[in-house]
């Protein structure tokens, strides 16, 4: 369980992406319950389920009893598939019943960060695994030997791109000496968001290694940065660090090049040459040099004059496209 009071504020700031995950979970749960109810009820109820599946226009215009009479009833599930349904449902129900702090954990000093995050995603990912198991059972492809383990853990590496977009944000409290962020790059995909609340000394710019064009990366002492992370429609990591160390925000949500995306407010100098956690002084200096290099690139990017853009597209096809887009205004439904 998280102990730092900042974690509560961080969890609150991450409500939107967490709600997206919970909404998908609830929708899956609904679908599985409806399916379960449809199968255990009588023929009349099954006709009702068939009717409902046609939508409101279908219900208004189709005689469902007659339709049911001409359609073959959905094939019975195999016994193994039938048996796994309640287990999948139980997984979904247990995950749905959890509070927000299910997405947070505190590392025991010395614990491996990569493994802990991996376990947390695999645990939360059981919702995806359970949904997949239900789909497989319904489509006749369920194999207990291959698929049962997805109800116990469903590792991030097996999530599809669409599933990664709905990844729940996670918050990890840890000691600076346990901060080995490089492995976390594996989880920075889709919509996955990781917030680290760091206690104690660590290297000065450990998160700089994770900066890529489409990844939000922030190293700061200010919890408010989490709101920007939550607003970003992509992967990201924010580290809330104690005093000292570098301070920067790389926000891909800001339009433009590296100069616009990267804001560096603090680049410290190393005081002496000593280890910080697992990082040697050379590695620490490398991080700072990398940050300075990015700072230089950002400055150069901002110095490049922007070529003037024509006010309206010159090409007739572009004009047409621009006009169509304008006509298709989809504001404010």
């Amino acid at each position: 369980m998280p102990s730092d009071e900042r974690t509560a504020a961080i969890l609150a700031a991450l409500a939107a992406p967490r709600d997206a995950y919970r909404s998908a979970l609830a929708a899956t749960l609904d679908e599985v319950r409806v399916y379960r109810d449809a199968r255990r009820e009588g023929a009349a109820d099954r006709h009702m389920q068939l009717g409902a599946s046609l939508g409101l226009v279908g219900v208004a215009h189709v005689d469902v009893d007659r339709l049911a009479a001409v359609l073959s009833v959905e094939a019975a599930l195999e016994p193994a598939a039938q048996a796994v349904m309640p287990r999948a449902l139980a997984v979904l129900e247990s995950l749905a019943a959890r509070g927000d702090d299910a997405c947070a954990l505190t590392l025991v000093p010395g614990e491996n960060l990569y493994e802990a995050v991996s376990r947390l995603f695999a645990d939360l990912g059981r919702a995806i695994g359970a949904g997949r198991v239900v789909d497989l059972a319904r489509s006749g492809r369920y194999r207990p030997a291959d698929h049962d383990r997805w109800l116990e853990a469903f590792p991030f590496g097996q999530w599809s791109q669409a599933e990664r977009r709905m990844a729940p944000p996670v918050v990890i409290e840890l000691e600076g000496s346990d901060l080995r962020p490089a492995g976390l790059a594996e989880f920075l995909d889709g919509g996955a968001k990781i917030v680290l609340v760091v206690h104690g000394e660590t290297s000065p710019a450990p998160l700089v290694r994770l900066i890529t064009p489409r990844t939000f990366v922030a190293q700061t002492a200010d919890v408010a940065v989490v709101q920007r992370l939550a607003a970003w429609d992509g992967p990201g990591i924010a580290g809330i660090f104690p005093a000292g160390g570098a301070r920067f925000v790389h926000d891909p949500g800001v339009a433009g090049g590296i100069g616009a995306r990267l804001t560096i407010t603090e680049v410290p100098t190393l005081d002496g040459r000593r280890r910080a956690g697992p990082f040697s002084a050379t590695q620490q200096q490398d991080e700072l040099d990398q940050l300075k290099a990015l700072q230089g690139a950002a400055a150069a990017d901002l110095a490049v004059p922007v070529a003037p853009q024509p006010a309206t597209p010159a090409d007739p096809v572009d004009k047409l496209a621009a006009w169509l887009l304008q006509q298709a205004d989809l504001s404010g439904a």
Partner: peptide, 16 residues
Amino acid sequence: PQLDPRWQAAPPDLRP
């Protein structure tokens, strides 16, 4: 609209 999970497409039948 009151969305109904039954409107969603069921997985296709992939049994042998």
